[in-house]
Nucleic acid binder design. Structure first.
Lengths: 342, 342
DNA sequence: GTGAAAGCGCTAACAA
DNA sequence: TTGTTAGCGCTTTCAC
């Protein structure tokens, strides 16, 4: 008896489909169908199988399933850092979009490193992912090539680029910068400083900012590049450096809210009046931005919403629904608050 | 020719181990060993295989690998909400602990719901996970049973409990509450209020708080339960409700920093002097807590560090290293700042 | 140190 | 609607 011979030597694997089938008195494939495609079996079959599954405590082996069917349920999501509230929000949105689906998101952190990104991508390829998501554009050429060859849906998020690998849902950093530039121009600020990253999306924000200012015949008098960490404490330090280098500075645009918040708090300690003496603006609209005093003028980016849209778009594609477009530009808004207006 | 027959019909699967073996002129099993157990093959073999892999662009199929070997590389991590900065930090720590290992963390959000937790746990069982991690104790009895039967390492984090399912790395919420109770007692506050969750870890914080106050013959005059969202805005609202119900309140302990920050900001608007008229304390030590004015007295919990320790402990177990203990209590600290001391 | 045979648990394709 | 057959791609014996 082959079945019982197997049964006897069965500590390793646990309950198999075959065991359920035997208990239910049906064939293994019927169990498989009742579980994975309930619409294609009779009501009676469904019940018999459900009972047998409950009785045996059967748990499907997804590795076997994926191996045979060729359809994986894993979707790696690459995030620079999950400690960044915006990325966390985006991730939450993506995660919510896939709730109740057959897919699972696998987290992969790239820590802002191209090398790590490449490594992480390589390390998830053995899973034969159903799709891949990125919070941020894929920078490295090698990784882009790898992903194109993969021939699975690739979703890039956060930024807006004319040449995504495949699908894209993002904001235009240039637009955010431009909105702030126009706002500064309208307010009539002279002696303007920019502090934050000057590469990648920082570069786009800065370029947009300059563009916006240019409409008013203005330009930043000082650019303080900050490529390292950009915490609240760094914002305070940045403020001091800017005031050293540009003592009569009238307005500063920080490329992230954390920096701007740090600057506002330090300004209070230095008894510099914001916005009267110095106007301060941020980017991102953190929860705290509207609550601090003075409340922070900033660019609102709906990260959660973006993640949700991206997740839904990708899910639709995976469930082979019609897709109107594979590129989506999320709205972005200037939030004018008291840190730039009296 | 079976091989070429297969080759001809080979669009689906891509390059297989067998293809690499043919190119390298060795057997499939040798390729497998060269890749997964390089120590057990000769230098020459390793080089031949490496060349053939590069030439063919081979990517291992982890589903086949796991199916055959029975050793999965997936570790689901259950988090209530990734938007909570502490949990995000813990997750980052856990993620860092597994960097460079063969394991992959799969994110699963439970949104503070027992039902969802159970569902999510069930949904990852088909992966035959190598281990399971939880940020928080597993509450539901059903899930606890499921996990015990699973017979894989289970790591619970964040809280401290005498009866974990398996492994545990956490803080004592009761201790945090007690430290704050003692601090309030020492400062001689009367008319004391507590605001925040009063269930689960909130209950522990509150109990500890009461215990600490009791040492000074004191007790909370008001407990404001907040089981719903607890954002900065909610903290401001909570402050107002407390002042309505307890107008001569001298000190408030908020169970999270967000609430306390909201209260501090609202107090400034209401022109209530902190700490002179009203002392405010929080729990968690968010980045901003030390930067706000007045800086916030709070309980410091090293979430990143905890996640890192938990990840390392679990990794050691999976790599079958000796483990001194499977339970670890992380240090917790009272950070006395100006919001409770003049 | 290397290889041959077998089968992990499941589902696609075909058949009834 | 249900069942039979075959094999997904790999690694575990076991042999040499």
């Amino acid at each position: 008896m082959k079945a019982s011979a197997r049964r006897a030597s069965k500590p390793p694997g646990g309950v198999r489909l075959e065991d359920v089938a035997r208990v239910a008195g049906v064939s293994p494939i019927s169990v498989s169908r009742a579980l994975g495609n309930p619409g294609r079996v009779s009501e009676a079959m469904r019940r018999k199988v459900a009972e047998a599954v409950a009785k045996t405590g059967f748990v499907l082996n997804s590795h076997a399933s994926t191996l045979k069917s060729g359809r994986s349920t894993l979707i790696p999501v690459f995030v620079s850092s999950i400690q960044n509230a915006h990325f966390a929000n985006a991730l939450q949105g993506a995660s919510d979009a896939f709730e109740g689906s057959r897919y699972h998101l696998v987290m992969a952190q790239t820590n802002y490193s191209d090398r790590l990104e490449q490594e992480m991508v390589d390390s998830v390829l053995p899973f034969k992912p159903a799709a891949v998501m990125f919070t941020g554009m894929v920078q490295s050429k090698g990784t882009r090539e790898t992903l194109k060859r993969l021939a699975v849906p690739v979703m890039e998020m956060w930024d807006y680029s004319p040449t995504p690998i495949d699908m894209l849902v993002g904001f235009s950093n240039a637009e955010g910068g431009r909105l702030m530039g126009e706002h500064f121009g309208q307010r009539g600020f002279r002696k303007i400083a920019y502090a934050g990253r000057t590469r990648d999306r920082g570069a786009q924000r800065l370029a947009g900012f300059q563009e916006g200012l240019a409409l008013y015949g203005s330009a930043p008098a000082l650019v303080l590049p900050m490529e390292g960490p950009r915490t609240v404490a760094d914002g305070g330090a940045a403020l001091e450096r800017i005031l050293q280098q540009l003592p009569d500075c009238e307005a500063i645009f920080f490329a992230t809210d954390s920096l701007a918040l740090g600057a506002i708090l330090r300004a209070a300690e230095l008894e510099i009046e914001v916005p009267k003496t110095l106007a301060i603006a941020g980017y991102g609209d953190l929860d705290i931005a509207r609550h601090i005093a003075p409340s922070l003028t900033t660019i609102h980016v709906g990260a959660y919403d973006m993640g949700l849209r991206a997740g839904k778009m990708l899910r639709a594609r995976l469930e082979s629904k019609e897709l109107a477009s594979t590129i989506l530009r999320c709205p972005i808004q200037l939030e004018v608050r008291t840190s730039t207006t009296p």
